[in-house]
């Protein structure tokens, strides 16, 4: 049984303009110890998936259909209290804006210890602090910074603290949403390296969310490409990179000469992403596709199996 099974998940937001279909019919699996990377432009729904997994959708967001099976249990059917209890203990999250993810008026050490204490009432405060020290060693923050406040930390240290916090309860799954975006390149490399090592060390499953395909390629063994709320291609890293099937994946990859080569930002693809309140009936990438067929704009595309475990949502494949 896979650690995480997401089946036909659709999520939407109530906005002033109407019901925005942020994620539509997304399905994927994640084995224990495996890593999956979601890549796509901002607004494609990858962060929404992360939030839905954690059960942290904003008040105007709702799951329309589908199942999220975590260790075989559907988290969507859990009560708030049950959900609260598995959060962090089973799956933790490294947030997009790590700079602001720490409470400015509490000491960093206490904030991490708090996560430990809330999930294991048998742990004493002192023991929790000992564990925090270990975590600090693990992520490479000097121990004398334990009693500091967040604003006294550098950006990289804050990010390390957030990682330490995510590891605090030894979760099985970590969702890392753009964990290094605000950092400079050197620190970014260090942190990514550390995350990778920690993953191995603790046999963690990781869902890595980024708009930067090179980072995803570097970090994950499975890749999911998202476009306009839909998963358009997914499969093992090698498969997706070596024989991309979906025109959008191809467009993305064309910006990167090599997988491990020099990194640059995503080169914008001409055209605009479709309106998700009233999405097009056919293929959503149609308007920007280099070689659409006549049926593309009228018929919804179907999944096509490219190779075992590698599939794409395109009728031209």
């Amino acid at each position: 049984m896979a650690l995480l099974e997401v089946d036909n998940l659709s999520i939407g937001y109530n906005t002033k303009k109407g019901y925005l279909k942020a994620v539509e019919k997304v399905s994927f699996d994640l084995e224990a110890g495996a890593s999956l990377g979601f890549v796509g432009e901002s607004g494609c729904g990858k962060t929404t998936i992360g939030m839905a997994l954690m059960g942290l959708l904003p008040p105007n967001g709702s799951v329309k259909e589908g199942r999220i099976l975590f260790e075989g249990k559907n988290t969507l059917e859990m009560t708030d209290e049950e959900l609260r209890k598995i959060r962090w203990r089973e799956m933790a999250m490294i947030f997009q804006a790590a700079m602001n993810a720490l409470n400015p008026v509490q000491r960093v050490g206490n904030q991490i210890a708090e996560a430990i204490l809330v999930h294991d009432p048998s742990v004493e405060k002192d023991q929790a602090m000992d564990q925090v020290e270990n975590l600090f060693r693990l992520v490479g923050i000097p121990l004398d910074r334990l009693r500091d406040y967040p604003h006294q930390y550098s950006g990289g240290m804050k990010q390390r603290a957030v990682i330490a916090m995510a590891l605090a309860c030894r979760p099985k799954l970590i969702i890392a949403d753009e964990p290094t975006t605000a950092l400079d390149v050197i620190v970014q490399d260090q942190i990514l390296g550390e995350i990778k090592e920690l993953q191995k060390e603790f046999d963690l499953s990781i869902i890595f969310i980024s708009h930067d395909i090179s980072i995803v390629a570097h970090m994950c063994d499975h890749i999911g490409v998202m476009y306009a709320g839909q998963l358009v291609e997914c499969g093992p890293r090698e498969g997706v990179f070596e024989s991309p099937a979906h025109p959008y994946t191809k467009a993305l990859l064309s910006s990167f000469p090599t997988v491990t080569g020099k990194r640059s930002d995503l080169i914008p693809i001409p055209g605009e992403t479709p309106n998700l309140v009233v999405p097009p009936h056919g293929c959503r990438f149609c308007d920007r596709c280099s070689g659409p067929e006549a049926s593309c704009s009228t018929e919804p595309p179907q999944w096509v199996e490219i190779a075992p475990g590698h599939r794409a949502l395109c009728c031209r494949c």
Partner: peptide
């Protein structure tokens, strides 16, 4: 709306806390 509130919530803290 601050991120650290989201963090706190993700940590599984009780609402009151």
């Amino acid at each position: 709306k601050e991120d650290y509130i989201l963090t706190a919530r993700a940590k599984g803290l009780e609402e009151k806390v």
